[in-house]
């Protein structure tokens, strides 16, 4: 059968849902679970507006089958609450129309969680996965740097910078 009932773990909740195997995660989140924060900006893996976290890693939900996420923890923008990156997006006017915002926020949130110290190279490497047409991108970059400061102010600073020791190329 091309359909099956599956249990997805989303934003800390188990959700039972009947999916077509051909359904992307994005379609299931939006059409069947009412989680419309992730947006279908291109349905082609190009724009990043549908970015969600699977476990702790950002993925474009339009190029992932829903069935691939069974057994993993899915986090959508609706699962974030008062995070530093959301606060920083507000403070830095890092959005205008807001359509790309959930995708940028999810990607940047993962970046902030995975990297204690964030340099400009890494911000670009991560954020060039998403497209924004309204802002100049300067605001978004400022939001990521602001969020890192907010995060550091909330948590005790760590000396562990091991994840940032990988080779760097010139920008």
């Amino acid at each position: 059968m091309p359909k099956q009932e599956v249990s997805l773990s989303i934003n800390g909740e188990q959700r039972m849902v009947v999916i077509r195997f051909a359904d992307t995660l994005l379609e299931v989140l939006r059409g069947k679970l009412g989680l419309t924060g992730a947006k279908p900006g291109c349905n082609n893996g190009d724009c990043g507006a549908c970015t969600v976290l699977i476990d702790t890693c950002p993925y474009k939900a339009c190029i992932m089958l829903a069935v691939e996420t069974v057994g993993h923890e899915i986090t959508t923008v609706e699962g974030l609450h008062s995070t530093p990156i959301q606060q920083a997006f507000a403070d830095c006017y890092a959005f205008q129309c807001g359509y790309c915002t959930p995708g940028f926020i999810m990607n940047a949130h993962a970046l902030l969680q995975q990297h204690r110290v964030i340099d400009e190279y890494t911000i670009r490497e991560w954020l060039e996965s998403n497209i924004c047409r309204c802002t100049s991108y300067e605001e978004i970059g400022e939001a990521v740097r602001t969020a890192a400061r907010l995060r550091d102010a909330r948590t005790a600073p760590s000396l562990d910078t091991s994840v940032d020791t990988q080779q760097r190329r010139d920008l």
Binding site: R30, T36, A90, I105
Partner: peptide, 16 residues
């Protein structure tokens, strides 16, 4: 602001 940074801002296709 709050609607847009939480993913709760509804656009046309979000009406399902």
């Amino acid at each position: 602001t709050s609607l847009k940074v939480t993913g709760h801002a509804k656009y046309t296709d979000d009406e399902i």
